[in-house]
Amino acid sequence: MAKEYQKHSDITPDMNLEWEAKYGKKRISDLEIETSDGDVAKFVIRKPDRQVLEAMGKYAAAKNVSAINKVLISNCVLGGDMEALEKDGEVYIEVLEQLNALKNKAKSTVKKR
């Protein structure tokens, strides 16, 4: 029997409201990816929080990139076209790049006193 995957069209307004309440509306984004063959995959993602970064750090010390990516995706991809994420390398890489970009958007300034 084939595995049943969630699709972006399965996401309900109630699910969106639940995610906004849990993570904060500003921390959630819609991601649309068009592959080189013209397919479009859509996802709802969230900005990684401290808990996710700490979980990733446990695997970073061991240089386990696969486990780091798994933690990031399983915690920060809230819903979407999951079959494309699992089976299409282009989609997988782009989702990872966008999640990594979200965790690196903060800017800081250091001033001497």
Rank of each mutant, 00 (worst) to 15 (best):
V91K: 03
V95Y: 02
N64Q: 07
K3H: 09
A2R: 08
I28A: 01
G89S: 10
N64M: 03
S108F: 09
Y5Q: 15
S36I: 00
T35S: 00
K112H: 14
F43Q: 04
A101W: 15
A60M: 15
S29P: 07
I45F: 03
Y23L: 01
I28K: 01
I33V: 02
M1E: 09
K87N: 14
I33W: 03
M15A: 01
S108V: 15
A2W: 14
M1V: 13
E90W: 04
V71F: 12
A2K: 11
A67C: 04
S108R: 11
P13I: 11
L102A: 05
G38D: 07
N64H: 06
V65Y: 07
N75G: 07
E54R: 13
G57Y: 11
M82H: 09
A21S: 08
V52E: 04
K25Y: 12
D30Y: 05
D14N: 09
R50G: 07
D39I: 15
V40R: 01
K70G: 10
V95D: 03
M82G: 05
H8T: 02
V44Q: 05
K70N: 10
D10E: 14
S74G: 04
A84R: 05
K22D: 11
N75R: 06
E86T: 08
R27N: 03
E4Y: 09
K3C: 10
L99C: 12
S9D: 03
K87L: 12
K22T: 12
G80A: 13
M15T: 01
V40P: 00
I73C: 15
G79Q: 13
K26S: 00
S36E: 01
S29D: 10
E94H: 06
D88A: 06
K103H: 05
A84V: 03
G79E: 15
I33L: 03
E86A: 11
L53A: 03
D49I: 05
V65T: 12
N69M: 10
C76G: 12
S36K: 02
V95L: 02
K105Q: 14
M82I: 09
F43I: 06
E86C: 08
V71N: 08
G79H: 10
I45E: 02
M82D: 07
L85R: 11
L85I: 08
K3N: 04
K87G: 08
M1Y: 12
R27T: 04
N100E: 11
L17F: 00
R27H: 07
P13V: 09
S9A: 04
A60I: 09
D10H: 10
I45S: 00
A21G: 08
N64I: 05
R27I: 02
A21F: 03
I73Q: 13
R113Q: 14
L99I: 14
A21P: 08
K111C: 00
S108A: 15
A61N: 09
E86V: 12
D81N: 04
K112V: 12
K47C: 03
M82P: 00
